[in-house]
Every structure is written in C-alpha cells, then in structure tokens.
Design a protein around this nucleic acid. Structure first.
Lengths: 218, 218
DNA sequence: TTCCTCGGAGAACGACTGTTTACTGGATGA
DNA sequence: TCATCCAGTAAACAGTCGTTCTCCGAGGAA
C-alpha cells in the first residue's frame, strides 16, 4: 500500500517530469499576470494577454485555470499564504516590553517585504477592494485569518494581556489595515520617500500603542 | 461689459439650452459609469459600454471626455469634491470636550454617506489603489487635502491643541484612512452588519482617541 | 515495447473594442 | 432671418477578446 504514495500526484516534493513541467508553466502564468498587473486591475486582465506574456498558447491557459479570477485567487494564496508565520516569527524577537523596538522592527519588515516582493504587495492592496468578487473574498479571508493570529500574539504581550478577545481583534484589525496601507504607501513613495514613509508609520504605531496602554484605564 | 458675463459659458447657473443639454448628457455618462463600476474596476470599463448604458452613440463620448480615465477623474471630483465642507460642518456640532459624542457622530455620518451614495464610496475605495494612475493620483490629492483640513480642525480641539503640525497631519492620516476603510466595511457588511461594523469603528476611534490624549505625556 | 494520459498548439468562431471620418439638425448670435 | 456652431449620429476600420474543437507528442504505467 505504502508504495503507492511514492508516485501519487499531489505528494509534496518528488514528482514526475510531467507534473514538474506543469507546475513550471503554472508559475509562468502567475508571474506573467503579476507583471501585467502592475499597470492595471485584475478585472481588465485578459486571458490571451497573460498567455502571450507567459509564452504559451491561449488555449493552454485552461489546463491550469478556468478564469483569470481563479488565477487571481491563486495569486492571493501566493502573496499572503506564506505571510502568517513570517511576520510572527520576526515579531517574536524583541523584548516583549520594548514597544519602540517592536514598532521599528515591524515597519522594517513591511519595508523589506515591499522591497522584495513589490508586485505581490501591489496586487493585494489593489484587489482588496477590487472588482473581482472571489479575489476580494480570498484577500478578506486571508487578512481576517492574519488578524486572528495577530490577536493571539497581542494577548501574550504585557500591554494587552487579559483583554477580551473582541478587543484584541479590534486592535489587530487596526494593525493589519495599517500594515496594508503602509506597504501601499511604500510603493507609492518609491525609494526616495521610503525613510519619511517609515517614520510616519512608526509615529502612527506609537500613537496606537499609547491608546493600547491606556485602554483599560477608565 | 457686465452683460457679457450673462451669456458666458462656464458661469454658474443660467446657461443656454445648449449647455444644459450637454451637462445632462455628461451627467448621464458619469451616472452610467458609476453604475457599471459596481461590479468591475475602472481599468476594465469600456468606452462603448458606458455610452451604451447612457443611451448615446459611442462617438459622442469624445465630446465630453477623451478617455475613460478622464471620466474617472471627473467621478473623483464628484465623489470627494463636496465632502470637504460636509463632514467638517457636521463635526463642529458637538461639545469640543465630548469625544465620545464626536466619535458616534463621525461614524454615523460615514454610515449615512455610505447609505446615500454607495456607488461613489465604492468607487473611491476601489480606485484609490486601482490600476488607472491619473485617477489614483486624483484620489490621493483629494484625500491629502481632506487630511489637511482635518488636521486644522484637530488643532482646535482640546486633546490635540498645541501639537506640531507634523503630528496633526500624522493623526489626520489615521483618521482619513480609517474613514475610507470604515466606509468600505459598511459596503461589504451590507444592511444587516451595519450595527456591528459601526460598533467596531467606534471602538477603534476610542482607542486612537486615548493615544491622542496621551501623545504628549512622556 | 505498447497503450494510455494529458499538457500544449493551431485554427476558426462570433462578439466586442477604441478611433476616424463624414454628416445631420437644432440651438446660437448677429 | 440667416449663417455659424457643435452635440450627437452612422458607418466602417483593424484589432483583440474568450471559447470550442481537433490534433500532436512526450511522459507514465503495464
């Protein structure tokens, strides 16, 4: 029985030449789409346009996606799927009491992310409120999931320990929205405006942190 | 000399039948576009599509706009142009010291605005990061202008009186972004989720208000 | 080797796109 | 009244679009 799993499709790693090539073409489609989406929205992205940029025949598109919308959902997964653990492990580094260090680190991570994957960041910011419903929903789901993880992490920090879950989610929502807005601001500002954009983001996080510290005062 | 102004084009009110009809057609184009933009983005909005929905010939489009992008910029003006005074006069009502009342009023105004002009709100939220650069820029300019006015108003309130202008703009940025996000959240939630969305927005504004109150503490 | 699977190519379809050119007819101003 | 202006029309243009159908040929299993 167990020898079946060795050649079963969908098994992680170790796939045949056939599947590997299919994955490579699929990735080429996603890369091409992401490149084209720099100057337009997903709802205007044509199937032929993508295949042309990817270097394959238009009809081959259907072997991977039935829609450009379905391609968009795959791009959401690629853009936000690996983000959950990444930021959390990055944020677990500093001393839990040093909020200033945490703020600087957070903004730095957002800047790095935007610099290393600008197309993905732009795609998420753009299609979050975009015209393609399934993609909008996928991004909303991912960000909601991400906010829940942030809420978990916040519950372990001194400033917000013991908060009701509802309040933690409220705060996490502020942070997630602010993260997306900041990333988009980095894109809009370009390399020259990176420092001032980062400083603005840090000050805003500082103010939110103050509110957090006094949330249970009165 | 003065009698010239009576028939001069561009004068407010009192225009000939000719100009009035042109304005009506122009408005029909904008209304049709706004209706079509409920389910797509501006970058996929076709010229023929708009004229068809407006009930005029495709070529007549060029009498009013050279692009759908130019039409989009006009929609930005229509959506955000009249907003500057509206919210400010609304916010000048409550006692300057009663921040809770101000918060409730603000969220209420956003809810009203979203209910009375959902298409405009959706358009702004969607195209703020959309694929059409001139429109993106127009929205950015309008929101920046709006943020400056908010900063002015904040400078007159007790909690943030005497702040440096830079900090006032930082805070105003939080408020403006939060306003757009909240309006978009109202749209996504629909009528049933209006109350919980409003409650979430109010709690977030309460936390930001706390941060504001303690900004100059340390 | 032999058969089967399946990712990809090619051609063709009808529909739709933005734009140009020439024209109409009612409002406009002397 | 009469010449002018100009918003809107109609036809035609070359492209592009999504989609279907048919076929090819290399990879995989026996």
């Amino acid at each position: 029985m167990s020898h079946i799993a060795e050649t079963a499709p969908g098994a992680t790693g170790a796939v045949g030449v056939r599947q590997a090539q299919k994955l490579r073409t699929r990735q080429a489609l996603m890369d091409a789409a992401l490149r084209l989406l720099e100057h337009q929205s997903l709802s205007s992205l044509g199937l032929r346009e993508v295949t042309r940029a990817a270097g394959i025949a238009p009809t081959a598109f259907y072997r991977h996606f039935k829609d450009t919308a379905e391609l968009g959902v795959a791009l959401v997964e690629e853009s936000l799927g690996g983000l959950h653990g990444a930021l959390r492990t990055g944020l677990s580094a500093p001393d839990p009491g040093d909020s200033e260090a945490r703020i600087a680190l957070t903004v730095g991570l957002i800047a790095d992310l935007t610099r290393s994957a600008p197309a993905h960041v732009r795609f998420v910011a753009r299609e979050r409120h975009g015209g393609v419903q399934p993609v909008r929903r996928a991004i909303g789901d991912q960000l909601r999931l991400f906010a829940e993880e942030v809420a978990d992490a916040l519950g372990a920090l001194p400033d917000s320990a013991g908060w009701p879950r509802e309040d933690l989610l409220m705060l996490a929502g502020i942070y997630v929205d602010h993260m997306v807005m900041t990333a988009s601001a980095f894109l809009a500002a370009g390399p020259d405006g990176e420092q001032s954009t980062a400083e603005l983001a840090r000050r805003q996080l500082r103010l939110v942190g103050l509110g957090r510290r006094h949330w249970l005062d009165g």
